[in-house]
Design a protein around this nucleic acid. Structure first.
Length: 397
DNA sequence: AGTGCAGGCCAC
DNA sequence: AAACGTGGCCTGCACT
């Protein structure tokens, strides 16, 4: 019996070189145009890809306000800084566009071509089972767990991940698994009920927090609640939420206080988890796997990082346990089917399946994934899995 | 020419 | 004192 991870590495995923090559050329053209425009705005040529040079141009040559230097004495020119500056000047927006294309070209359309195996025509990533402290896998050479999806431009890179002739790709992903596990672990009745009722979870949170009826929900209020939901999983702070939502810190802290009021289990969970970590030097997933937290006793800035990591670890770690249990059971569950499990992306499994066998695979794989915690852990919240099918990874989502 | 870090940015 | 968790890869740059 070949171990699951080794099987996946051997199968690999088919990647179409021509698609990547065409996209790469298109990116190069657009970058050249932007670069010329950027040099014109600045008045002289420079290396657009050098944050150091850009910072000096923005904050010294051009004299824009708000330049902040980091530890190394260089001005910060990250996307958040440039987005703020974009209201003052045309240059930052142009640089942001250039950087997006540069990232997509260098890291994806160019680098992925170099990873296509000559014999198989496929890309074979490597998975490290000890790659992340929480128990997640880590993918390297190439990392196939960070292929773009959020931006329209980037998402198209997934069109190069294709099924062979006569086959399709099928993506199955857990819906909101970490929030569901949070509802169970922190014992949040309102959240559990919302999942049981199949509600829009961020809208429900917004409704509870801001006293807005669901039928009067606005996208903006929902967006704020979504940011808070994610923040809670990560061990939220008023400062961090303020930065994310771009609102005053006092207002962000007010949101958090309100959240704790409406979902009191959250505060108990956070306090209990920190106390447990301090006493034992580790925290645990629902399955009893230990995640060591040696820095929990630190003083200074490290203390905050360690506390947030300890709060996040049981949630992220339990999700990692769940999908790993599913992966281990998968070969037996799909035995005899013309289907191969190709990739894992934390809450998603990607399969390549003969046309005609889609429904069988989805039924079998979904059943394994949704029940992966059985029989060791009985969850108060059902795990649900969304499925998509297509000729490429973009369509399968 | 190789090495390692910093800054930046992609994913969940 | 820093400021939301887990990762990996790319370029620039300083260094040997």
């Amino acid at each position: 019996m070949v171990p699951v991870l080794a099987q996946m590495e051997r199968y690999g995923v088919k990647v179409d070189r021509d698609t990547l090559s065409r996209m790469s050329n298109a990116f190069a053209q657009k970058m050249a145009g932007l670069e010329a425009e950027i040099h014109e705005v600045v008045g002289h040529p420079f290396n657009v890809g050098s944050p150091k040079q850009l910072g000096e141009i923005l904050f010294e040559e051009m004299g824009l306000e708000g330049g902040k230097k980091g530890k190394t004495g260089a001005y910060a020119t990250g996307a958040d800084v440039l987005e703020d500056l974009a209201t003052e000047h045309t240059l930052p927006g142009l640089v942001l566009d250039w950087r997006q294309l540069s990232k997509l070209k260098s890291t994806y359309t160019d680098a992925l071509q170099d990873h296509i195996n000559k014999e198989t025509g496929r890309v074979h990533t490597s998975y490290s089972i000890t790659g992340a402290s929480t128990g997640r896998l880590a993918s390297t050479d190439p990392n196939l767990q960070n292929i773009p999806i959020r931006s329209e431009e980037g998402r198209r890179i997934r069109e190069a991940f294709v099924a062979e002739e006569g086959k399709v790709l099928i993506a199955l992903d857990y819906s909101q698994i970490e929030l569901r596990l949070l509802a169970h672990i922190a014992d949040l009745p309102a959240l559990k009920q919302a999942f049981a009722d199949g509600q829009d979870i961020h809208a429900m949170t917004a409704s509870e927090m801001f006293d807005v009826p669901l039928d009067q929900m606005t996208p903006e209020i929902r967006r704020q609640a979504k940011a808070i939901n994610f923040g809670v999983i990560y061990g939220i702070s008023g400062f961090g939420l303020a930065r994310n939502l771009r609102i005053p810190r006092a207002e962000a802290q007010g949101f958090i206080d309100r959240y704790f009021e409406r979902f009191p289990g959250i505060r108990t969970y956070m306090d209990d988890t920190k106390a447990f970590a301090k006493e034992h030097g580790y925290v645990q997933t629902l399955f009893g796997r230990k995640i060591h937290t040696p820095e929990i006793a630190s003083k200074g800035p490290r203390a905050g990082f360690a506390a947030r990591a300890a709060i996040n670890a049981p949630i992220q770690g339990t999700a990692a346990d769940v999908i790993r249990r599913a992966m281990i059971r998968m070969p037996a569950a799909i035995e005899g089917m013309p289907a191969k499990m190709l990739l894992q992306v934390h809450d998603e499994l990607l399969f390549e399946v003969d046309k005609g066998a889609e429904d069988d695979l989805i039924n079998a794989a979904r059943d394994v994934m949704e029940n992966a915690s059985d029989p060791v852990v009985k969850l108060d919240v059902k795990l649900t899995v969304d499925a998509g099918t297509g000729a490429n990874w973009a369509q399968a989502h």
